[in-house]
Design a protein around this nucleic acid. Structure first.
Lengths: 183, 183
DNA sequence: CATTAACCGGAGTCGGGACTCCGATTCTGT
DNA sequence: ACAGAATCGGAGTCCCGACTCCGGTTAATG
């Protein structure tokens, strides 16, 4: 692959994260091209389909989060690791996961993205388990409910303008609810 | 207004709630017409614009929730009222509020819908205040964070197939987090 | 440098969905 | 039952966005 080609690919992916993050899946490919500073044809050569483009952006994002989770699993204090991970997932999701809805909205994406999602879930489970072992999260909590809560806050704060302060307080509510016995 | 016209208007609104609830704003007007059993022209005479149709559906939904909140405010036990209201908002939202994203996704809707949203918020605040007076929710909690949490769970569970059980557990987490002092 | 294979750009095609128009079809008062 | 007005239905228009095509341009190699 030629050097300029690789550079363009990168710029397109970055632009895609911006555009789809801001406008959701409705964002147009042309907008991505414009923001990446390339022609529309270039976008479609790199990613023959809009779906493919979104998939690639998702994959990149998931892999990044997975790496983060792995790093945190090695963290000294599992309770801290847990808080940081949850916060990171919500906050990065708040900007970029508007698109994750696609992933989950009915038809799943093929192979690669699904695989990345699975890897991510495994990594999150790991951090969660450690937190539970230490009592920072109560035992009966499952990854599914955590995911639902995280996705919810991520989507809601991405969809609507939210003050960072409000988001922080909401995250604290969730973390508290996960650690205390249910009322 | 002629009788049949009024009936059609109703059927169209009901169909709109279904369609936009299921497919989000992407749902087509034609699909609404088909499901309402009327021609496309009829839909557009009643609601000259797709936005208008969505707005009308939202308004109806908001007003319904507001009424529910008022009724609950008169409930004997404010703690119970609170739980029921939160649950109702999330669950009805899970089916129908996929469209609420429109309301909040950038440009607000004109007058009527915005006004309905305001009335709803006031009613919710009322129930919340009573719950706080009784100690079922801790005092420093604001309507904003509650809204964020509710919208989040509603959107997330509408967007993605979610088992009722998981949703229930997530709601409990939120309610717990709202009642306990933050960790 | 020259060559050439790979890459870029954007005008053009195609499909889908919002919205319009008007003849056909009902209601409703007398 | 009938006139007349209001309502319906859906074929047709228009625009927008995904995707294709190919002549022009550029990086790499000898």
């Amino acid at each position: 692959m030629r050097q300029d080609a690789r550079e363009n690919r990168e710029r397109i992916l970055a632009a895609a994260e911006e555009v789809f993050g801001a406008h959701g899946v409705t964002g147009s490919t042309e907008e991505v091209a414009r923001r990446a500073g390339v022609g529309i044809g270039t976008v479609f050569r790199h990613f023959p389909t809009k779906g493919g483009l979104i998939e690639a952006a998702l994959l990149r994002h998931f892999d990044h989060l997975t790496a983060r989770a792995h790093a945190l699993a090695a963290e000294a204090d599992p309770a801290v690791a847990w808080r940081v991970l949850v916060r990171a997932m919500i906050e990065s999701g708040a900007t970029k996961l508007a698109l994750i809805s696609v992933l989950t909205d009915g038809r799943g994406f093929p192979d690669s993205a699904a695989a990345a999602a699975t890897r991510l879930k495994a990594a999150v489970s790991d951090v969660l388990r450690r937190a539970q072992d230490v009592g920072a999260v109560r035992a009966p909590v499952t990854v599914e409910e955590v995911y639902l809560l995280i996705r919810g806050l991520a989507q809601a704060s991405a969809t609507t303008p939210t003050s960072p302060d409000t988001l922080d307080r909401a995250i604290d509510v969730v973390l508290t609810g996960l650690s205390q016995p249910t009322v």
